[in-house]
Computed example of a mutant assay.
Amino acid sequence: MALVSTPALAATAPGVAITIDDFDLSADPLMRGEARDGRLRESLDRFGIKAAGFVAGRNAVGEAGPTVLRAWSDGGHAIGNHSYSHNYYDGKDPLAYWQDIVKAEDVLKPYAGFRKLFRFPFLGEGKTVEGRDAMRQLLSDNGYRNGHVTIDTSDWFYSSRLVARLKADPKADLAPYRQAYLDHIWEKATFYDGVGQQVFGRSIDHTLLLHHNLINGLFLGDLLAMFKARGWRLVDAAPAFAQPELARTYDAMPSGQSVVLQAAIASGRPELARYPGEDSAYEKAKLDALGL
């Protein structure tokens, strides 16, 4: 007998919100940055969801930046702060790093979609407790919340491999890259959701880390369709960030990476986490074996 989904059952399924980092609008081997952005927004619109874009300020001041950010604002998507220079925060000079965040805010705040959500580049929140807490205080004092990632990925590495292949062979078959990308994201989603269930006692609405790159421009729609077909709910980013699990701070070191892993460490379950959470070193052998 086929199982019949009920509203109560559906509500317990994990949700996933799309967050997109960096907004590097340079051209890739197949399309200009503006065209890639249009494909990303079209995929979001097709599935009726609102995303969050975490924009490095330096990427918002080029020729295409204002047009793209107006389109995100007009589409009802949130725009968050990803620093101006996209430098790693090691915690050594919080005030200097804060000035880089302010510089990005000056560029981003004219857009209606701007929200005081800050996402650390490379998800690094400081190598010391003192540096971590100093930046947390600066953000809080100035009305910012952390734009936490729950599902970390290496989509950027998959995209870089695809770009390299297309530069060498412009007629390369895209299908194997599509499948490898979908498999990777699904593996990461189920891993982080599994950790979250153990730490939080339930599946939350996840914030998925993606980047403004070729592989997402090509296959974001396929990714959303995959999540939906496999029983996950597609949710808007704003309410996902409002969940109590993402609003808390966790006393975990090393600080950063997925907030799910931070919560695992803080709750006394460090065996559930790994550091770094995601890295190209974990994925290279897989893609090499596939000839990609």
Rank of each mutant, 00 (worst) to 15 (best):
A64Y: 01
A64I: 05
R136C: 02
A281T: 12
G75P: 05
R233I: 13
D28F: 12
W156Y: 08
N146F: 14
Y88V: 10
D37P: 10
I49A: 08
F120V: 06
R41A: 06
S258M: 14
Q262I: 10
A64E: 07
N216Q: 10
A175C: 08
T128Y: 04
R36D: 10
V129L: 13
A71T: 07
R58C: 12
A35S: 11
T190K: 13
T128E: 12
G268D: 14
A289C: 06
A64K: 00
V68D: 00
D21R: 00
P94E: 00
F200E: 12
D251L: 04
D24M: 09
R233Q: 09
D183W: 02
G91D: 03
E105I: 02
R145I: 08
N59Q: 14
Y181E: 01
Y84G: 10
S140A: 15
D90W: 05
E105V: 06
S73A: 07
A225W: 06
L40E: 11
T128Q: 04
L223K: 01
V235S: 12
V102R: 13
R119E: 03
K284L: 15
R165M: 04
A238R: 07
N216T: 15
F200W: 04
K284H: 13
Y192I: 01
R165V: 04
K109H: 11
A240K: 11
G194A: 13
A264C: 05
G268H: 09
S26K: 02
D100I: 06
D152M: 05
G113S: 12
K284Q: 11
M31N: 11
S73Q: 01
L272Y: 06
H77K: 03
V16L: 08
F219T: 10
H148F: 03
A266T: 06
A104Y: 07
A252T: 02
D100P: 02
E125T: 05
M226G: 14
D169I: 14
L214K: 08
P29N: 07
D133V: 06
H148R: 15
H206W: 03
I18Q: 01
I215W: 04
L40K: 03
G291E: 12
P276G: 13
P176G: 03
Q257E: 15
Q137T: 15
E125K: 04
Q99R: 08
H212P: 00
H212Y: 03
Q179I: 04
T150R: 12
